[in-house]
Amino acid sequence: MTENERAARQKKISHAIMWVVLLVLFICFIFPFIMVVINVFKTKADIVKNPLALVGAHGFTLSNFPEAMKKMKFWTVFGNSLIITSCATVLTILVSSMTSFVIVRNGNWKFCTFIFSLMIASMVIPFQVLMVPLVSVYGGILNVLNHRLTLILMHVGFSVSMAVFMFHGAIKTNIPVALEEAATIDGCTRWQTWWKVVFPLLKPTIATVGIINAMAYWNDYLLPSLVLTKKNLYTIPIATQAFYGTYSTDIGLVMAALLLAMLPILILYVFLQRYIVEGVASGAVKG
């Protein structure tokens, strides 16, 4: 055996070992999900008896789904989550990209640098510091809680600083001022320059900001639970929590509710997996 052959063989063996290690880790990682999936098709008695069995003694059943859906008002809360997440994501993208456009192009204006520094500094404030005054101002003084719009605008307000930071970097490094000057000479107003020239060039950052925020909004629990206290306004995480509080002993229904809560985002992930992983990675590295 030549030196090269030996090296190639060694590489093959080490790759095989690594592959096996990865597979074992992967199974450990998805084990909780497997547990949910195999138990969701069992009756309560079968789950209690043996949660590890693939099929229960009473056989395969779908009855957990319709009951859980009815009890957690799945379509209502799904609709709420969908409306809130999509509106808040679109608004975040529009509002923060426009904000950073002005801030970048007025870089030497003290007022803009002040607002920008304020936003950067505010990113270290955890939500726990803001929750009490938030409830006291918007609940006690202004009395605007329990509206979807309030939650949407709050979501946007909390994400603005991070999103502005990301758009700021993108506009500063990727959009030459000469391009805007050319548009102005061709007769564009500032507004048209923004919509027709700059905004379309920000697509990669728009995707990143959109994905990160949409996931955060969809999964957020604490803020929505403080803002929305009426049952018909619940989002999926709050509904799951409320459902668990009431039916925690009805384990079959719980399994169905948990699966239903995960399913929308998992289905989306199957199709948009590449974009989501890339978007989150580039967002994480910039943040």
């Binding site: 509002v95 923060s96 426009m98 904000t99 456009f101 002005v102 801030i103 607002i115 304020l118 936003m119 505010s122 404030i125 510091v129 803001l130 005054p133 938030l134 101002v137 605008l153 709050m154 946007v156 307000g157 909390f158 603005v160 600083s161 502005v164 923004w194």
Partner: peptide, 17 residues
């Protein structure tokens, strides 16, 4: 351009803080 973003930011982060 930046009015809505700034107002929302101030309203939910800075004012409560």
């Amino acid at each position: 351009f930046a009015g809505p973003g700034t107002i929302l930011f101030l309203a939910v982060v800075i004012v409560p803080f």
